[in-house]
Design a protein around this nucleic acid. Sequence first.
DNA 1: GCCCCCCATGTGACCGGTCACAATCCTGGC
DNA 2: GCCAGGATTGTGACCGGTCACATGGGGGGC
Lengths: 351, 351
Amino acid sequence: MNVTGHTRRPASIRDVATAAGVSYQTVSRVINGHPSVKPTTRDRVLAAIDELGFRRNATALALASGRTRAVTVLTANTTHYGYASILRGVEEAARAASYAVGIGVLESADETAVAAEVQRAADAGGGLIVIAYDPAGVAALGAVPAELPVVGVVETPASPPGGDRPWVWADDREAAYQATRHLLALGHETVHYVAIPSSTRRTSARTAGWRQALREAGAPEPRPVQSSWGPAGGHAAGLRLAKDPAVTAILCGNDDLALGVLRALHESGRSVPGEVSVAGFDDAPHSAYLTPSLTTVRLDFTGLGRAAFALLHGVLEEAVQVAPHPVSEPELVVRESSGPPPGGVQRRPPA
Amino acid sequence: MNVTGHTRRPASIRDVATAAGVSYQTVSRVINGHPSVKPTTRDRVLAAIDELGFRRNATALALASGRTRAVTVLTANTTHYGYASILRGVEEAARAASYAVGIGVLESADETAVAAEVQRAADAGGGLIVIAYDPAGVAALGAVPAELPVVGVVETPASPPGGDRPWVWADDREAAYQATRHLLALGHETVHYVAIPSSTRRTSARTAGWRQALREAGAPEPRPVQSSWGPAGGHAAGLRLAKDPAVTAILCGNDDLALGVLRALHESGRSVPGEVSVAGFDDAPHSAYLTPSLTTVRLDFTGLGRAAFALLHGVLEEAVQVAPHPVSEPELVVRESSGPPPGGVQRRPPA
DNA sequence: GCCCCCCATGTGACCGGTCACAATCCTGGC
DNA sequence: GCCAGGATTGTGACCGGTCACATGGGGGGC
């Protein structure tokens, strides 16, 4: 097996063919599992493949056949828990299907920057998965040329800006609805909301679910506090909300925001959950270990990533079309950060 | 610009050549910036390129020239802060150099699984960056065939198992040393250490730095508590350490472990930093917002990723070799979780 | 005015696979 | 024993670029 010392270039199908005493086309048939190859011949070819350590050149395959077996994930953020988990899900599914996974980061939502990044992803060949939870992602999804196979991971199911592209989504609306109902059921008069940046100018799914729960309960609807993605934004928002003694329950657009809010409440001397209840969103790994541990809604991001890949895989190989949303339901996880409002129940919990 | 409705395949250099009335080779020269092309001709070609929306086919380029302009990052984990940040740094630098970035996840340290993943990465063409902080990563680095260009992101600089491969590293030893000295300087008799899983059977760099600081101070050297990567491991370790009233200072292998330790101390009724001081490692984004906020050592993971790419880039293109460790020094960040031991200073702080 | 050389451009082969089609072998039916 | 037809195998062209070399034209040195 490669006894000669000097680096030689890897064996091609013609090398294998020579070694096995057949034509290159026969080798091609063997590696593609074509049925009409005599067993004897096949064995000889396989032996030669083994001996030369032959591996099919993916580049040549892609050029000759057009099949690329690659996916590029376009995302605005790789360190954030939700995004990273989606990426992980994609990678998992892609690995199982022996697809290569590429990644492109959308540094800004600027139109030309986004277009450049989409181009770069397109150049890589294969399919695209765009995480369109934020303005940059939404812009990217919109900028994908029509002929490119793409799947969006979107916030709202109703026809996203990307048009008729296939998509997957987690039911953020339902998740926010559940979390809000939980807080209301504890007896809070209303629930304030610290929002992550919206992906579109329209109301986000999370905001919508929160509002729906308030409305159904006949609770007052405070203005949502627009914030950022990270704990710093939550901290700033939390400081503002802490000043208002009427605030007894806060829902946050994600767990990082909730962390910042918790910190702000602590600094303002308001106890959680004694005076104020806080709920997050996503169930990031650290949320269970905070003090107080964080009530939140768990979303199956990994499953979402897997689903996105499955869908794209179906598009690329015209195999069985996967059902568009096989992702598990959001699950409310009640921990220490939520409890009844101070001074007992202020309004009747719903029957 | 592509007025016809039906999807047509993208323009090739021959299409451009025909449109510009030159040969395909001239087009090739223009897109490669070859000097000897008459300006008039160049302009005509550029116009044709623009009109047809020509983009050079990366696959064909790779096949014909061997240059791939791609990096694959092999890592055991994508959601963990440090890993994700390294990946981000690589992506950033790669984008600037217009390289494509691929990602492969090492699901287990099992030899055949690792070998398969390395093969997959090799098939993608281009260079490899292996994050070798853990057994799976170390195994992967070792399994990379000699002829493949690879850079390791390693824990300890001294000849890693990968042999003479180029590598980058953050000075974990120095970082642990600083953190430990900080705690000792506050007056703690000694510092306990909750360790992340070691990448090799040998003592990790972080453990070594911690031990060195203890030794220099003549402090007792407790056995390090072996743990995992996540908060759950830190929690378990913290519960054990909390039982021992002699424990007044704990250094953790990363911020997630520290989070678990903080939680365990809280559950055990021991106040931080009143009774016990805790320090972490990495300065993850949430650490500043914990209650108490976490004293930790900031490491420039993003810079590490950028450096890894720069090094690989040098190897791939035989450009100027980059200095092997241009990564910034670790920086101690003192926050609320560390303070003097209960009952005042128990030993003299070093002069 | 001639020759040499460089500038500008074109031609053919090749990278390592695939595809479409042709050519051979072998077998059964009559 | 002859022929049709499926099973095997081989040949040439092609994917979209690059590389090595050939070719035609114009300017400077003499």
